[in-house]
Amino acid sequence: MTNDPKKPQGPAGYASPPCYASEVAPDYFDPLGVDPTQAADVARWRKATRTQLRDARMKMSVADRQAIAGALITHLGQLLQERFAGARDMVFSAYWPIKGEPDLRPLMTQLHDQGVTIALPLVETKAAPLTFRLWTPDTRMVRGDWNIPVPPPDAPALTPDITLAPLVGWSADGYRLGYGGGYFDRTLAALTSRPFTIGVGFEAARLPTIYPQPHDIPLDVIVTEAGVRGNK
């Protein structure tokens, strides 16, 4: 973080600009008031925080990670039942777990068996919105961007009604710290009909704020092993 006296300062009572996460109240940051220098500070903070949170979750034991995934599957199942009557005949976009993310593949199979259409997101064009393609338990996966298993190119393209968003970090106001590529926000902005968005992550990855920028889009709810956050 820089300490440039020319940078805009906060309102009276705050000695530091908004990028100082340890010194500024989370509800103080104005996402529409950023300047290029401030945005660069936020980007550096996010990169460092992203690395810290990813390292922490990779150090979790397999047993702990499995227990958290089990709790998440329970909470997600209850959420889908309460809000969407189980989401039968709807398109539900999940994700293939990487880099210590909670493994929700049993939920994908469970929902498929209950009549939910399952899609997986994939990068087909760099720096463009994601594509969603049909997944079933019989799908022969291929290696996609970042070597992530994805449905093959001939799998039908779908538009999700509900989509999961894996979280590296999250804040109580519904904002997501992702991997930094901007694909999820870019995709939401491009969809004509926005899906119901569910952030999925670890309770320990909660942050006071991610210092939201104008391009950041808040999620509808966030689900951790502790339960469901948000009431949209």
Rank of each mutant, 00 (worst) to 15 (best):
S193P: 00
K126N: 13
T136Q: 06
D220G: 06
N231Q: 09
V123D: 09
H75C: 07
R65D: 08
A63Y: 01
L164R: 06
S193H: 05
A165T: 11
V91M: 13
P160L: 03
T125V: 15
I98N: 01
Y175P: 07
L111P: 07
T117V: 11
K59I: 00
E203V: 02
D145Y: 13
P149K: 00
I217T: 05
A63C: 02
P106A: 06
D154G: 07
Q81P: 01
A205S: 14
Y179N: 12
D35A: 01
L122A: 11
D55A: 12
L207F: 13
P153R: 13
L120Y: 06
A15F: 06
P8V: 01
Q81F: 06
A21F: 15
A21K: 07
R83P: 05
K99S: 03
A189C: 12
P208V: 13
V62R: 13
D89I: 04
G169P: 03
R229M: 10
G181Y: 09
K59H: 10
K47E: 12
D35F: 05
I68L: 04
P11T: 12
R46F: 00
G180I: 15
G13Y: 01
L80A: 14
V24L: 06
A69L: 10
D173V: 05
Q114E: 09
K126A: 14
A127F: 06
M141A: 09
P18D: 08
D35W: 07
A15E: 14
K232R: 00
Y20G: 00
G230N: 06
S171G: 04
T131E: 11
A119H: 04
K126D: 11
L79C: 09
T117E: 06
V62P: 00
M60D: 08
A190S: 15
G144C: 07
G178D: 11
T187P: 07
T187Y: 02
I162Q: 13
R57F: 11
A40L: 07
I198N: 02
G144S: 03
P160G: 02
Y183C: 10
V228M: 02
F92C: 00
F132H: 15
A85H: 11
T51G: 06
P18I: 04
S61I: 07
F196W: 03
P212G: 04
E82V: 02
L134P: 05
Y179P: 04
L122C: 13
K126E: 14
E82G: 02
S61M: 09
N147Y: 02
Q81I: 02
T117I: 00
R194T: 15
Y28M: 07
P137Y: 00
L32D: 04
A67P: 06
E124C: 12
P5Y: 08
F92D: 12
V142M: 13
D35I: 12
A127V: 12
S93F: 05
E82K: 05
A67Q: 11
I162Y: 11
A25G: 01
T117R: 10
F29W: 14
P18T: 05
V150C: 09
G199H: 10
I162P: 03
L134H: 14
H215N: 08
